[in-house]
Design a protein around this nucleic acid. Sequence first.
DNA 1: CCAATAGGGTAAGTAACACTTACTCACAAT
DNA 2: ATTGTGAGTAAGTGTTACTTACCCTATTGG
Lengths: 182, 182
Amino acid sequence: MNSFSLLMAQKDFHSITTAEIAKTAEVTEGLIYKYFKDKKDLLYQILNEHFFEFQAKIENRIANEKTCVEQLEVIIFSSLESYAANRIFSKILLLEVRNSLDFFESGAYEMVRKYTRTILKIIEKGIETGELKPETNPHILWKVILGAIEHACLGEIIFGREFDIDEVATGIANIVFNGAKA
Amino acid sequence: MNSFSLLMAQKDFHSITTAEIAKTAEVTEGLIYKYFKDKKDLLYQILNEHFFEFQAKIENRIANEKTCVEQLEVIIFSSLESYAANRIFSKILLLEVRNSLDFFESGAYEMVRKYTRTILKIIEKGIETGELKPETNPHILWKVILGAIEHACLGEIIFGREFDIDEVATGIANIVFNGAKA
DNA sequence: CCAATAGGGTAAGTAACACTTACTCACAAT
DNA sequence: ATTGTGAGTAAGTGTTACTTACCCTATTGG
């Protein structure tokens, strides 16, 4: 998994050969298949590991915030921070796993779903307490937030461009919570 | 290209073999390589064709709207409509081409960039005329809108789930322009 | 009128790759 | 002493994207 991550920093999934992984890890190709079902499984396992850490960190931070808006702001900031700090994880999650249906049956995806449910609950609570507009559709709000986060990172991941996390996070939060219209 | 599109409706890019494409098109494998540089090029060409139509349609509709907000609303609605109506195109654009750097040097990507520039201009004009808040960062606003659109379609594309275009479009526009905070 | 050219098309390859098989070795538990 | 097990390997195999060398037909220019 370490060797594969190392190679993922240099090129994309399909350009990496099993021979190359084996050589970098200083084992033989056959051994890979004792630990992983196939090449994709190796990818999913890496994602799983990172996602676990990511989720634990975020849930800790959320617990420190009281209002729904503050919690969502923490999510926006922390997500951007995690994506920016861990390019390989981001690359796998945003660009490599989604095109195969296998992923959506993997354990890694189960974590994504659990995470989504947590956030939907925050939004629903915000609507209940009157913090958010009553006509808000929680699923759509979540899509707007997540979509913005992921799109903000795409340039960084694909072209290696850097961005100001604080600026982007407050920018997204401002639009989503206060609206862009004057 | 027709045969490939047909196959793309059933499975993902890497599960489709050149032999299969050739058989469906009732030609031999070799002929594919007289018309396309490689398998990826075939993918990009399909994207190119659809994107051209998509862009022409949207630019027509934009011309009919006066205010910046109305124009952006048209973009949101039309994008969702196009994605929903053309699953194969969406699948290619949102899931299959992005993981390879080749795409970002292709003609198809040049069209995406041109499209983005058009929209940025609309947003900038909206800030100038005072329709949008002066502190709005155009790039971030565009990322929020595009991210929301793309995320809204992902479920449809990946799982074949259907959604109410009108509801999602007005939902996104409401959040982005008026904000979710009460 | 016919020869040259070129484009549409094919059959039979080839190299590289993901993955498998059948095996060895070390060592711990019964 | 024997058996089982987990780590590891060497040498495959089938499939796949892509290539090569060729054929056939139709237009076009001298």
